[in-house]
Design a protein around this nucleic acid. Structure first.
Lengths: 140, 140
DNA sequence: CCTCGTTTGTTTGTATACGAATATTGTAGT
DNA sequence: ACTACAATATTCGTATACAAACAAACGAGG
């Protein structure tokens, strides 16, 4: 069996590309004092404010234990708030706080700029294939 | 400006797909007592045993601080050993230990099986485009 | 009601990931 | 030989990521 470099494994390629893009996002998100993952959480809340913790985790394909920590930090920085669900005492509802609502357009503009800068590096048909495959791999 | 779900951002798609694939790898790597990232390190060493720490980090597009921790754990589990570089006292050389050499073919077979199982889910032309784009994004 | 299994969110432990600071060593220029 | 800067690996602090264990609350069936 011939020797295969890690750079031939699709899992490694994915990991490397993801780290590269995420680092690029995070460098540019520094002035907003937010990480890329935290931005995804806030984006989800713009779509559905007051969503249940469980549903938020599903929307983000994220482990609940991971989301707990992320919400802890977002709450500490006053980007979101947790409230008890009046209909189920086990459940927690997550809301955007003032600080997120106030900066909504800045966040969004920057995120779309970053996304477009990646997109512009590729032939649009290739990019469509790429995006579709990422969705297919990432689907639940 | 319309509301955009995080699932439309390419960075989120990449992150989600990468986590999914990596989790799949790691579930199957459990019996070998090794993580996906640790497998990449060992694969690199199969190509170039006794490589310099710095070069290993570059080969893996990995931050040195991250690699230090990974080597600590691999060394503790006796998969690799560190040795002083006789030509530069700042530098460290990384070698495979017996335990890695002995299981080389098992590791390789499993990794290729997992890789092929991903690959087989797609049209081969689409997969080629996908792979090429991951390389392009991930290049230094 | 009561009990038992399930659901929900958190906590804990471990493993990446990376910026910043650090200690040590190398090297170029004088 | 000295100085100043550069390169190397580690350490520290913080943020994901996830499995496993946990506490609290729900709900179906008796």
């Amino acid at each position: 069996m011939s020797i295969i470099s890690p750079s031939h494994y699709i899992c490694f390629k994915l990991s490397r590309a993801m780290r590269k893009v995420q680092r690029y996002y995070e460098v540019n998100l520094v002035p907003l004092e937010i990480t890329a993952v935290q931005f995804y959480v806030i984006s989800s809340l713009w779509e559905t404010d007051g969503i249940k913790f469980k549903e938020l985790a599903q929307k983000l394909s994220m482990d609940g234990a991971t989301l707990t920590g992320i919400l802890d930090r977002l709450e500490r920085q006053r980007f979101v708030t947790r409230k008890d669900d009046p209909e189920d005492r086990r459940s927690v509802l997550v809301f955007l706080a003032e600080k997120s609502l106030a900066q909504r357009d800045e966040f969004r503009r920057l995120a779309e700029t970053l996304d477009n800068e990646i997109r512009d590096q590729f032939n649009s048909q290739d990019f469509a294939t790429f995006s579709r495959m990422l969705d297919q791999i990432g689907q639940d």
